[in-house]
Design a protein around this nucleic acid. Structure first.
Lengths: 340, 340
DNA sequence: ACTGGCACTCGCTACAGTCGAGTGCCAGGA
DNA sequence: TCCTGGCACTCGACTGTAGCGAGTGCCAGT
């Protein structure tokens, strides 16, 4: 079943108008606002076909048409023209991100910026530990039997953890431990550390063996297992724009999903590369988000992603604009992180 | 103007019923559900007085009564009986907080626990840097001209910051710097550091002076000025309970306020001691929160507060229960932190 | 000082009627 | 074959009316 060019143009017009007005769009209004060059009756026939094919639907018999998830999908894939960022937006991005003093700062500024520009909920994942390397490990004695382990990754992330040692340990031993773990681990990707940590235990002198064994389990936990992926969120208030029309009247499931870090990570953290993904309504595997769309991408220096970022909004969103903004912000953040 | 005991009992009954049912309560229903020992007509007379005094009001002429903010205030101050925690709740608190591995973990678990127990929005402030002491300062060379400063506070907080040095610096100098700043600063409260940092600069050898000067400005910023109070949030989805009846139909202002860390800090971070504060509706200075109530308290070892925590919900909330829960959680967290 | 009784208020619901945007279909024309 | 104007039809939104009932305020009686 073919959709000729005019039918596609009609679909595009419907999507654009509906996104703009938030009201079902009728045949008459369509020909008035777009140069389709045909009469409302013709458009009606096209609409009937589009509806049959599942791209649009009627909320009720005597109402205009509304795009379906499938309609948005087609629109995003084939009909939307890329919308270049306005100079004002570019400037906003630069101004907002310049002057960030540390990673936390970068992430927070980014997420707020994204929320503000897209007027939607923004999510930014901290650079993944899985794709970081060890830059430094610090052991700070808290008491004679307790150490604080601080791991600094090359992406700027800092993770800390308390270690309860099996027995008291003299200061010189702490110095030795610090030297040993740094010699062995600095520079290697976190994912490669398990055998190295094991080697540390095996090679330890009898005097250090006990402490090193305890330390090693904590190291493995901190570096590999717990993996502590973190995210930042902003713009939840934007969910209430457009009254309760979006999200079929209930913000509940959306807010619930946003609170589950695991869910959010699945959503935006899977990006391995810096390509952009768009999930529309039903395509979403998370039931709570069936009424929402997500635009996400990876960010990082080059084409490999250190982490993901994206926005979440109603299926009725300005896809071209959102996609452009998300991409632009990701690129800037990638560059920013590359400088460190 | 005196409110005799029965009138107070009526007010209490109104508050309790309204909180439970979320519907305006009438004189007949009141005498049925509570043992007031008088007839509806009498209760009506009492209600008229209570209304005149501003403790309750009628949504419309032919409806039951609803407590006003002032009514809730009187209820909280004089009428509510302390509601002891159920054993199940106690167990939940212990189970939830045991096994936290670091400060982040403690804070996250606490905030989720609070949200879950009170079924409201929970806010937890990280232990304030202003009330922390320096436990250790670490300088990690990133390149020949850049250092990462990591400050570890006795409360478990870890702050980091990049320093751009005026020129390249040899490794031995970094070691010297590290030794000097630690000798001088470890153990002192963050608020007392400015003169010490100044002394560090004054006493520095000519060779170290340049680096130390740069370092000192960053130290002051990190330790004192920027102060980076942080908070964690959970349970926003609970705002949608009770449909749109609470918060007069618009979550918008609430969500906006929750996103402003500064606002939240003002709300729960001012606590100097571990006494509990209750702000009801209009009493709140933040316009966006005029439709909400906040129950907050400080937590910490002993009676001085390291930080604040609390919950935010509709004015129509179960004050006795919420207050009890907030207090209990704060006490547990205080004990937990004292152990470190 | 409390109570029973009574008239009154007013929001809620149901129902009927009107309006109009929008549709589907059909016959006629390029 | 495809497009167009015309026309009958559908159905949600809005309006106005009426009855119901929960709840009140007031008053006279105990």
């Amino acid at each position: 079943m073919g959709l000729d060019d005019r039918k596609l143009a009609v679909l595009r017009a419907i999507v654009e108008d509906y996104v703009a007005t938030q009201e079902p769009v009728g045949s008459k209004a369509l020909v008035e606002r777009h140069q389709l060059g045909v009469s409302p009756a013709t458009v009606r026939n096209d609409m009937a076909v589009l509806e049959e094919e599942g791209y649009i639907r009627q909320p009720h018999t005597s109402a205009g048409r509304v795009p379906t998830d499938r309609g948005y999908r087609l629109f995003v894939d084939r009909l939307s023209r890329v919308k270049p960022l306005s100079p004002a937006e570019r400037r906003a991005i630069e101004r907002f991100l310049v002057g960030a003093v540390d990673l936390d700062d970068v992430v927070h500024r980014t997420v707020r910026l994204l929320a503000q520009l897209t007027r939607q909920v923004a999510v930014v994942q901290y650079p993944s530990l899985a794709r970081s390397k060890v830059r430094h490990l610090e052991l700070v004695p808290i008491s004679t039997t307790r150490l604080m382990v601080v791991m600094i990754a090359d992406t700027g992330r800092v993770e800390q953890r308390l270690v309860e040692l099996p027995g008291p340990i003299p200061a010189e031993d702490v110095t030795d431990l610090r030297r040993l773990v740094n010699e062995k681990l600095v520079g290697s990707p976190l994912t490669d550390t398990p055998p190295l940590v094991q080697a540390l235990v095996d090679e330890a002198t009898p005097q250090l063996r006990g402490a090193m064994t305890t330390l090693s389990t904590v190291l493995l936990e901190t570096l590999v297992e717990r993996h502590e992926e973190r995210i930042a969120l902003a713009g939840t208030a934007n969910l209430t724009r457009g009254g309760l029309l979006d999200f079929q009247g209930s913000l509940r499931p959306i807010l619930e999903a946003l609170e589950e870090e695991v869910v959010m990570l699945k959503l935006i953290g899977e990006a391995e590369s810096t390509t952009t993904r768009v999930l529309i309504g039903d395509e979403n595997e998370i039931d709570n988000l069936r009424a929402a769309s997500v635009v996400s991408t990876g960010y990082g220096p080059g084409a490999t992603a250190l982490g993901g970022l994206g926005v979440l909004g109603p299926t009725r969103m300005d896809y071209p604009g959102t996609i452009a903004t998300v991409r632009a912000v990701a690129r800037y953040v990638g560059e920013l992180l590359a400088q460190n």
